[in-house]
Design a binder for these strands. Structure first.
Lengths: 214, 214
DNA sequence: GAATGATGTAAATGCTTCTCACATCATGCA
DNA sequence: TGCATGATGTGAGAAGCATTTACATCATTC
């Protein structure tokens, strides 16, 4: 008896898997939310795909490169989600920005595998150039949204768009890390993470001199 | 040849170490910043303390309980640092609050071992009741500082102190996670993490209707 | 129809966590 | 004084993981 024919992987007909790379990523995405990015093992992913523990090394240099690959793919999906939420600034730039923030939280909650690989797996963003680029693309969306919001201010009173984007990103990321995930939140809260974020962003914009629907 | 007499641990005279528990914590605090909270191993800590790999289990149920112990100790020191920075609201509540935020970043930077155990090691806050309590104590300091700041607002316009504290905590934590640590920041920035945080908090307070030095 | 490169296997190494039976030592108690 | 006892450390070992190396299988191509 071997692990052959015992995996959950789809499409394992003969000696070769045929789609192992994808199957491993799929397995990892299912495994990471279960055991955390630390608990995830290369060997278990191979088992789920129905191949030997050595097979994954034909597709990824090592465990970290699989995680980096997932993180990169995650940033791509992340960028898509943020873009969709931003809707090119509709209905108005401030609402769009709030929606992007909520999409940030939603992504952390609904895509725990990707999110963990991106931010909690200890993978440096420079692991690969592609990963860095994917991360930059995602951030650029926040930055563009910030620019549209700032455009509503008179010329002389505009703060740097980069700073605004960094503030909202940090706030979103902090809330997602502390209260947003599927794990027990760090602290009991009287409001949802989404409401907390929206309130924070609104106060912040108020501080910049922007009014809702302004 | 055994690991006996080869450890770096202080005070290993005879068969018994004499202070193994402390030595293991010390070793872990030195090791975690090197290899990350994931890379840290129980066995290596034992080696540094000059004892066998089985010895640590006399003092900690398992690896996670050592990390939880460090996290708890970290929250205690964290609380001390935040308290000192807050200085009971001196010179004025807003400045005190900003200083607490900076102390948050400073802690992340100067105590990477503690910080990683507290927030990046995948240790749930409910790992032990003591850990949860230590975390709550630290947060209470932020909450008190928020209350002092809010007191500067007219009765009818005071937001919930808890919300304000959560906002500033999240922003601080987000900045610390993304840009604050010793690892490569997620993004190049035109300003320091401290300046970014201070600017964010000031804008936020402005949005609440508070003026600097008001 | 064989050479070739891509993909998967077996086996082995060295690491980890964690357990269990046993060794050593300080302390207290007779 | 001298022996029980509990706390602490040791040795050995089971089970699991990452990773490598030599070898097996298969599709493709010339």
């Amino acid at each position: 008896m071997s692990w052959r024919h015992h995996g959950h992987g789809r499409g394992r007909a003969g000696y070769h898997h045929g789609n192992l790379r994808e199957a491993l990523i799929e397995a990892a995405l299912a495994l990471i939310p279960e055991s955390g990015p630390l608990g995830f093992t290369f060997a278990e992913a191979a088992r789920q795909a129905g191949v030997s523990p050595a097979a994954p090394y034909r597709h990824f240099r090592d465990r970290d490169h699989l995680l980096a690959d997932i993180a990169q793919q995650g940033f791509d999906r992340f960028a898509e989600a943020l873009t969709a939420a931003g809707a090119d600034g509709a209905p108005d730039p401030m609402t769009a920005f709030c929606n992007i923030g909520k999409a940030y939280l939603a992504f952390a909650r609904t895509q725990p595998g990707y999110y963990a690989a991106m931010f909690e797996a200890g993978i440096a963003l420079d692991a690969t150039p592609e990963l860095r680029e994917a991360g930059d693309r995602a951030f650029a969306i926040l930055r563009d949204a910030a620019e549209r919001v700032i455009a509503g201010l008179p010329q002389g009173k505009r703060p740097p768009a980069l700073m605004v984007a960094l503030h909202v990103w940090s706030l979103s990321h902090g809330i997602a890390s502390l209260f947003g995930g599927r794990t027990t939140p760090v602290r009991a809260m009287p409001m949802s993470a989404e409401d907390l974020l929206e309130a924070g962003v609104l106060v912040y914009f108020q501080g910049l001199g922007l009014q809702k629907q302004g």
